[in-house]
Design a binder for these strands. Structure first.
Lengths: 211, 211
DNA sequence: GGGGGGATACCATGTTTTGGGTATTGAGAA
DNA sequence: TTCTCAATACCCAAAACATGGTATCCCCCC
């Protein structure tokens, strides 16, 4: 029995979804809300396994809502629902922590299927969405490589600090070592990465996905 | 009738898949090959709609094969199949152009389902793969935000140079201006970005997708 | 029990960067 | 026209960084 909560401002759509979910043996609709004004209260009371979240909503929008829910209940699965499939929304939803993303014109049977999949740990996506997600990954050719450069754990730690924009002094404080030691580590990092400045190292770390 | 070609070095698996696909009304197996030695020839003759491609193969591996196929037949759908779900392989497969990615332990019925989905323009992925893909997207904040910071064109140009790891001197040479002018621009960039070092600026530029 | 490597620390020196000035020129707005 | 602003250029001092050393400690492995 998968417990589902719905956030959807369109009344007929909301009631339709609730009826559909409530009318199935596998699912239980534990709440259907027109907005996110009482988001955490609603969620806390309903205790759903899966949240069906409309993106376009007055007041707190769906993407903000995802962030709020995930902050409090990270294990809760969230399936975004929208009429538009624009990259910005998809991207921001994913970043906020949503597991799935479907378009509203998706037939009911597939919505049910998606809820089941997301509950099982999958990431259901409308084909057009999936394609856009793949494109997003493609535009970042650097994740691949993952050249190791044989950095030691400590060196990776230092490098991570540098990627946060810290100065030697800040790194020293953060790692509880002297500035001189930071200096030594940085020297070794430069040698292994074959660079000669902090920014080069930072760039290589980000692009080469070392950190 | 979806025409499917199989590339899989394990004989029993290959024959099993071929039998399964051939035994269904919706699918037709137009070829089953143990390696990619005659890749283009095989593909040209078989003319499949969907290619089922094993990643781990002697000789030309599955990822290289995808790139080759996509080069010649960009509209052909390719479903990757593997025993491992490591990020590197997933990422490289996606970059090479594969539309789907499933693990070998996926039950036959779901493999058939995935073939149908990929043929319809979807991107079927094993849940664990989908999760990794979403994580890859998350590490890539560039599509979102896009804060402008009101940089002038020249300043963006300078910043772009910095993001390439260049020193002031190199920027000066590249932009045909004096080092002093670079200095002035950098100062202005720092003020607008509210940072106080080159690496901070570089980081903000990359993450904020300014460049 | 010695050798290698990683982490620590310090010294010295030169270069680069940072942040504070001032000043000229040309384009476009008031 | 005058004024603002981007772009150019220069000066200077302090801070941060880059690069070359040496040296100690500890752990693991041979």
């Amino acid at each position: 029995m998968i417990k589902v909560a719905i956030f959807e401002d369109n009344r007929s759509l909301r009631e339709g979804l609730a009826a559909m979910i409530g009318g199935t043996a596998e699912f239980e609709c534990v709440g259907a809300f027109p907005n996110c004004n009482n988001l955490l209260k609603n969620i806390t009371q309903a205790k759903p396994d899966v949240v069906l979240m409309d993106i376009e909503m007055p007041g707190i929008n769906g993407i903000e809502a995802v962030a709020i829910i995930k902050e409090e209940f990270p294990e809760m699965k969230i399936l975004m629902e929208t009429i538009f499939d624009d990259d910005e929304k998809i991207f921001n939803s994913i970043c906020a922590g949503a597991e799935g993303y479907i378009l509203k014109h998706t037939p009911p049977a597939e919505i049910m299927e998606a809820i089941k999949e997301i509950h099982e740990g999958g990431s259901p996506m409308t084909p057009s969405i999936a394609n856009r997600v793949l494109k997003m990954v493609k535009t970042k050719p650097e994740i691949g490589h993952k050249e190791s450069f044989d950095l030691t754990d400590r060196e990776k730690e230092i490098l991570t600090c540098l990627v946060k924009g810290m100065s030697y002094k800040m790194v020293a404080d953060a790692c509880f070592i002297s500035i001189e030691t930071v200096n030594v580590h940085v020297k070794n990092i430069y040698r292994k990465l074959q660079v000669h400045s902090k920014s080069e190292a930072v760039i290589k770390a980000i692009k080469g996905r070392i950190v």
